[in-house]
Design a protein around this nucleic acid. Sequence first.
DNA 1: CAGAAAATAGACAAATCTGTCTATTTACGG
DNA 2: CCGTAAATAGACAGATTTGTCTATTTTCTG
Lengths: 197, 197
Amino acid sequence: MTAGKQKSARPAASAKRRHLLSTAWRLFYRDGYRTVGIDTLLAEADVAKMTLYNHFASKEDLIVAVIQRRSDEVLDGLVGAVKAAGRSPERRLLAVFDWLKTLFASDDFKGCAFVRALSEYPDPGHPIHHAAWTHKLAVRKMLAVLAAEAGVKDPGALADALRLLIDGALVAAHATRSAKPAIVARQAAANLLKAAR
Amino acid sequence: MTAGKQKSARPAASAKRRHLLSTAWRLFYRDGYRTVGIDTLLAEADVAKMTLYNHFASKEDLIVAVIQRRSDEVLDGLVGAVKAAGRSPERRLLAVFDWLKTLFASDDFKGCAFVRALSEYPDPGHPIHHAAWTHKLAVRKMLAVLAAEAGVKDPGALADALRLLIDGALVAAHATRSAKPAIVARQAAANLLKAAR
DNA sequence: CAGAAAATAGACAAATCTGTCTATTTACGG
DNA sequence: CCGTAAATAGACAGATTTGTCTATTTTCTG
């Protein structure tokens, strides 16, 4: 994914970069992309400013990297949940919503990092907006595969509808600090799946 | 709604206030609540700074007022769309999604102002976050009434599910600059309605 | 027309923002 | 152990942020 020359690639360099990314993720997700300043991040990570600007061209660049890294995490989590769900196509598809439920139940859940990025950078042409939407497209693709496995007539159409349920649940779970939207979404998904085949 | 003393209530005063609110709405919705500064807003509205701080206690207070005003607009729009849909309970309920479609088709559509507020102020205890969620609760109530009219078994449950579809569609329409998510949501809503009764 | 309320321009404070630059120190590999 | 690359501290620029204060002018009402 992260294309680029790692010619000399000292281990320490990558370690600093990873450390910056994880600290940035934690602060950005807790307080917001625009709210958290570079100085705050550097103080929290205990890293010098020039180190950050040596690894990332700008704050915008850092945020895009944070989003891509988080996207990988989420997709990995979803793949794992689907695998653990066994062979039944219906169970595999609904496993996505069970995964959501555990996400919502986490103490530090503060909504969807991607929806929040889309909102904080509302211009669709903005690189951060684009990076966040790219993640949503990847999720849609995964849903379409699961829908096809389940033998529905139009997997793409079902995937589109399920993604609406998921994003809606993410928003509702954020504001209500409850896992219930995952249950609502799961039930609705089951109904839509039945209607689609 | 807007409780408070309007003791002397000079017309001119209210006019300034309304002018500030409409300019604030336009800029905040176009570029984001945090991005737009007070000075920018004042320059655009051609109003003095002390006038603003005479009508609103703070920027936060102004944003809350903008959100409440927008909420009234949206609810009025929805009520109108439902009324225009006639008597069929199913048509009335689906009219919400037709209204969404025209919203999405607007040139300056930039996502849901309330979802964006929830995201820009991710702390659920924040007054702006709370004001935005209050709107979503009002929409849910309206959906529950329509669901009850349609004679479904559990109107609250259907309203919850429909709200997920709506918020998901708002997010998708924003990022894709397309009205298609309204069609997807409408179809899914019709399926859920059928399954619910 | 007189008096009161509202709006104005503009300076100002105090903090914060991202990004650049330099000089120094640390750390690692051959 | 030496040379190179990475990381550091900290100053600095230049712009921007919200909110306050004052002195003046406009505007409306009785």
